[in-house]
Design a protein around this nucleic acid. Structure first.
Lengths: 196, 196
DNA sequence: TCTTGACTTGACCGGTCGGTCAACTATAAC
DNA sequence: GTTATAGTTGACCGACCGGTCAAGTCAAGA
């Protein structure tokens, strides 16, 4: 089996469930059943690994539940309900497995390392930008088909992403996936008017 | 000068600008100009320190800009505008000082350690609960004085807090305090209806 | 003056950190 | 059968980690 990918998978899980600084390379190597030397054959530094993890997880995400949620066959505003559902079930499943809600890997890493590494930060903003675009397209479509009143789709999309991340943050802090359900319905109420 | 408080102040700043795991006790002692032994006279462990830091910062917060923002002499919904302003100027000032937006200490810690320490997590949820109550009182007052249509003030308050944290997260990820300005106006648009 | 106890010092501990390296193995090309 | 190269091994490095401790300082109370 592909060693490099195995390292990434192990690191992804550990970083997501704990934190970047808290997880050591030794532990990653042990769980991936390789030696340290092998690790440094594939990655020049720990920082390199987390970059690869972000990239990999962004792909998972884009082709996984984000792709399903933003399915263009669904009516636009229903996609947002679907997204909340997907986030809820995902976090709930993860909690049942590990005992704790892991939250959003990108959000976690963003808060942990944004002040310390601008390259990693830029990588994360690129992921957020991608997510924002999904929201924006959905909103544009909803406006075009007169499902919702016109608004500043760019800013509203950004605000929706922020709300999604914030909801997950609060849910993680109380280790309660139900928070996502309880607060999810407000996502569609968020509006930023044009020229506001 | 009070050594214990000096340790807390140094730790508060370092934890806020970096992360819990990234800051070592040695560094805290150096910056506070004390020896390690002194540190362990006041705190039994690093974990004890961060507990004290959360407590201390929650006090700062409650008596500082939260107290100002939720000033009962202001019309209720204007308090929320004030809060956004305060958050914006605070983050902007911090960025000018350190080069990076530190974000919200509570949010940062929540995502870093929620999966690893349930006592710390509980401490943080208590802080969030307090903040939520402020929002709730404000909303109750706004509803009572017919400034806004009736809604589920409990849930909406929680949603507003989540949005605030999410906004700060996204702003920190792009290291751009202007994000708070750009997205701030949506805070008041958040609504969760009763019996929804 | 003697004692007490809060506070401070700085050397020290075992363990772990991220990272290096020379040697080895397995595979495939020629 | 030789060579090149990708991948792997495990010992090793210095630095740093959180935490301990015996020895000392110093001010207040008796």
């Amino acid at each position: 089996m592909d060693t490099r990918q195995r390292i990434i998978n192990v690191a992804k899980s550990l970083f997501h469930n704990r934190s970047y600084a808290d997880v050591g390379i030794k532990e990653i190597c042990d769980k991936a059943e390789i030696q340290k030397g092998s690790f440094y054959h594939f990655f020049s530094a720990k920082r390199d690994l987390v970059l690869a993890v972000i990239e990999d997880f962004a792909q998972d995400w884009a082709h996984g539940f984000v792709h399903e949620a933003f399915d263009s066959r669904l009516p636009p505003m229903e996609r947002i309900d679907y997204l909340i559902d997907a986030a809820y079930f995902w976090q709930k499943a993860a909690k049942n497995l590990e005992g704790h809600m892991p939250g959003c890997l990108f959000g976690n890493l963003a808060l942990e390392i944004s002040t310390q590494d601008d390259v990693l930060r830029a990588k994360l903003t690129a992921v957020f930008l991608m997510a924002k675009e999904r929201f924006k397209c959905t909103l544009d479509e909803a406006v075009a088909s007169k499902k919702i009143a016109p608004l500043d789709t760019e800013r509203t999309a950004e605000a929706m992403l922020a709300y999604l991340e914030g909801m997950i943050l609060i849910a993680k802090a109380s280790n309660d996936p139900e928070t996502i359900y309880r607060l999810g319905s407000a996502l569609k109420s968020i509006r930023i008017e044009r020229n506001a």
